[in-house]
Design a protein around this nucleic acid. Structure first.
Lengths: 202, 202
DNA sequence: CCGATAGTGGAGCGTCTGCTCTACTATGGG
DNA sequence: CCCATAGTAGAGCAGACGCTCCACTATCGG
């Protein structure tokens, strides 16, 4: 049997999360990570293979957590109030996550696409990443279908706007600052309603 | 009399703009800039002093252009339709700029705050940068004042949301892709209306 | 023709980065 | 006891980066 671990990979991920939330992806270097986590360079590379994989894995955990929360909220709202309520619930999901688990929300909000999917992420992790993307795309398409009986790009774009871009614009700054958004939530609901009323292009 | 210029500093700025629009700030290096512009390393540093100053100067030119356009649109809308129309016009200004000068809009949309204001920007340029910031802040405060007779942070926040964050969420992706947004403009107007109806917190 | 001036060119310095490589270490099965 | 195994440690490599430095060059007033 091999030598036992002295550094839990989860502890390395936790250190990475801290640094990402505090300073963002740019200043997160291998050296900063080893200093914060106590693990050596060799240990980090033995466990993850690349720094990009560390970042991608940290993101992946939190994104799964978010999508689960969002899916539940959407299904519940869909059953109780129909597709419009479901879109509202999906848009509100980041605020809910911030209520339930602020560090998780802060991590997701502190990274951009390019930070997560680089050339050096381990193939297995990259596959999971793309699977999550597909899951979100599926949810968006389902919502468009339920709203207007349409699954075309124009319809999905409107839903994406409501569920992805508007929350990013209205909620992310507050979350990044470590607050659970309050007033912005009401504004978001109003904006989503207005955009849905516009509907997709014919 | 000195030796005449063989490389117009404006040509260096133009090359920087091209690279920023094509690939963003991250990949813009001194070497890439010298290769694209034809000017040597020495010339770039003689003219600007630092790479950050090149980026800041390029941004500054375009931001001035944008703020002028926006100010005119706001004043005209204020006179013709009152403060709500003025906010709508301010929010729509990025789309107008994209119509009038697509490269200008693409440049502004391809940079973030941290890309522009670094420690190495020449003091004179940094001062101008902050002056532009103050000018925008003034416009936002004036709009809040005209709408609700309030200049407090909560009121200004609502206007900022309408004029800065919502346009970023709804228009920037299209502009970044080199298109003049069409449908998003109507959605933006609807969203701005809905957020204004919410009003600021008491 | 000359010297002051402003611009040009590019070698290369110091630093930082992600990552590799190798020697080393703790474990349990045989 | 000893070896296969998996994990640990950290020195150091190759390359990229922003920037400095200095020799050089074209201009024009005198």
């Amino acid at each position: 049997m091999p030598r036992p671990r002295v550094h839990d990979p989860d502890a390395i991920l936790a250190a990475a999360e801290e640094l990402l939330v505090e300073r963002g992806r740019g200043p997160l270097t291998v050296r900063a990570l080893t200093e914060r986590s106590g693990a050596s360079n060799g240990t980090v590379y033995h466990a993850f293979g690349s720094l990009e994989t560390v970042v991608a894995t940290a993101w992946l955990r939190r994104a799964r957590q978010f999508l689960t929360l969002q899916r539940d909220a959407v299904e519940q709202a869909m059953a109780a109030g129909g597709p419009r309520r479901a879109v509202q619930a999906a848009a509100d999901a980041p605020a809910r996550l911030a209520e339930a688990d602020l560090p998780a929300a802060r991590l997701l909000v502190s990274l951009q696409r390019d930070d997560v999917l680089g050339d050096a992420v381990a193939p297995a992790v990259a596959v999971d990443l793309r699977a999550l993307d597909a899951a979100l795309a599926g949810t968006l398409r389902d919502l468009a279908q339920a709203l207007w009986d349409r699954g075309d790009a124009a319809a999905v774009d409107v839903v994406t706007l409501c569920v992805v871009r508007l929350p990013a614009a209205l909620l992310f700054d507050a979350i990044r600052a470590g607050q659970v958004p309050a007033h912005p939530r009401a504004q978001l609901a109003a904006a989503v309603g207005a955009v849905l009323d516009c509907g997709p292009t014919p």
